[in-house]
């Protein structure tokens, strides 16, 4: 019992911090860089990614005994593509306005290697419950990076936070938008693709700074944890 609990903790710590898909594995950069122009975009893609990751992890884990090594990758790709299509069609049918705003992002999830990586590295070797936790942890870890990058770019590029929240969350969310700077203020670079790269670079650097700060820690131990991560 205690061991499973420790394992759970490890899964969550890996997903959120030590092995974060956005900041450490640097997977899923295509959607990460492309859509994070605003906080709401980041949040929207984050939610969709979490859902797909959880579903595909669960499906892969349930089928793991049936899927021999030879056909693993094509089977994973099939499962992921199916999940993404299910999400896309369901959004279009039952949350049509939301699907209008997320429209282009949802198919982009297919290009997110995090999902295939989790299926291969984790879900295909673990029972469904652990795979579920891993999907949630990695998904939330990825979503947090999306939101942070989106918020940073939006703040610098447009001077606002949570603009157009009502498109994603419904009319009640209109009040969430905070215009920090006067209208028309903003550094255009942050909204353009280079701004995405610079922003992500800064986030990665910040994380590196935070983990390397305790200089007192013995160097060898530090080296060990780093190899373990890769």
């Amino acid at each position: 019992m205690d061991r499973t609990l420790t394992f759970r903790k490890l899964i969550w710590r890996q997903g959120l911090w030590q092995n974060n898909p956005g900041l450490v594995q640097l997977l899923g950069l295509c959607p990460l860089l492309a859509v994070t122009t605003t906080t709401v975009n980041g949040l929207g893609l984050g939610l969709a990614t979490i859902f797909v990751l959880v579903c595909s992890n669960l499906a892969v884990s349930l089928l793991r005994s049936t899927l021999q090594p030879e056909i693993r990758i094509p089977a994973f790709v099939l499962i992921i593509a199916t999940t993404v299509t299910v999400v896309d069609l369901s959004l279009q049918a039952w949350w049509h306005d939301l699907s209008r705003t997320l429209g282009i992002f949802v198919p982009l999830i297919v290009t997110n290697c995090t999902i295939l990586a989790r299926a291969e590295a984790f879900a295909s070797r673990q029972p469904p419950i652990s795979a579920l936790h891993d999907g949630l942890a990695q998904g939330i870890g990825f979503a947090l990076v999306l939101i942070a990058l989106g918020a940073g770019r939006e703040l610098i590029g447009q001077g606002s936070v949570f603009a157009d929240a009502d498109l994603l969350l419904g009319p009640w969310a209109e009040g969430l938008t905070v215009q920090m700077m006067p209208e028309g203020w903003g550094l255009l670079l942050a909204m353009l693709p280079p701004g995405a790269f610079i922003g992500l670079g800064l986030l990665v650097a910040l994380r590196q700074y935070l983990i390397q700060r305790p200089v007192a820690a013995p160097l060898t131990q530090d080296m060990n944890t780093r190899t373990a991560q890769t």
Binding site: T66, Q68, I71, L78, I79, T82, V86, L89, S90, A93
Partner: peptide, 29 residues
Amino acid sequence: WKPAIALIAVGLLAATILAGLDRLTRDRI
């Protein structure tokens, strides 16, 4: 032949799910 059969099964399952969902959602969409 087991791997091939398993892959076909997964493919058929995926196709069934998607075809069913398409029928379910087409009119609404």
